[in-house]
Amino acid sequence: MRNILAFDIHVPLSSFSLVVKGEAGRGVTAVLGPSGSGKTTLLRCLAGLTRPAAGWIRFRGRDLFSSADGVFIPPERRNVGYVPQQYALFPRLTVFGNVEYGLKARKVPARQRHSHVQNMLKKMGIERLASRTPGSLSGGEAQRVALARAMVLNPDYILLDEPLAALDPQTKQHIREFLRSVLKEASCPVFCVTHDLGDVRQLADRVMVLRQGRMVFEGRVEELEKEDSFVSSHISQT
């Protein structure tokens, strides 16, 4: 079975409902839309942090959520790589401890854990930060740690919520390129929520555009680019 994450969900929100259907395979899918369009809610549903009112979510044909069959797999049993907007690093743990957290929860033996973490830190270029605490990291460094913490578990799919929004413009460009190279290697579906068309152009292969809880466009990035008027009317370019 191919690595396809598919969903058809209905989530009532305070002023409208998120009603979306779609699927994504290997590669980066950008979820684009103005703030308050339901992007983050979609991501939370895929992560298992929000339970939709109705519909289904499947990975490789297996139900992660199905209202018809009463199935709801909680986040800890989904094998998801989730990076929230503010990175949410554990402040009391070191960088090493943060990356190790998920492996410990999965009862990986200490020796294997150690080498997994070391390799991941090396891959992310943050070995020298291993014993630092999150409070002492720059935005770009924190981003890499959060990504390492998610990717060390070899997740089935990766969810990034506004990965670049918290960074200053210079760091942003740098991290964007870094993200691009890391995500290219990942052989699983990656969902990247953003409201920045620049992110979409550089990072994504496909794009889903949300507006008021509905998916108003789904397709390749180049196709979106052709529809100039569409882009300007549906996306805030900040």
């Binding site: 298992g48 800890e76 989904r78 989730y82 949410a88 554990f90 929860a105 578990l153």
Partner: peptide
């Protein structure tokens, strides 16, 4: 205790009990 931290903990494979004892309680 930051809700984001407990949510991330869950996505990393720590169930509600483990998240409570390893993250929320010490914090």
């Amino acid at each position: 205790v930051d809700r984001q931290l407990t949510e991330v903990s869950r996505t990393l494979g720590a169930g509600p009990w483990r998240t409570f004892f390893r993250l929320e309680l010490p914090t």
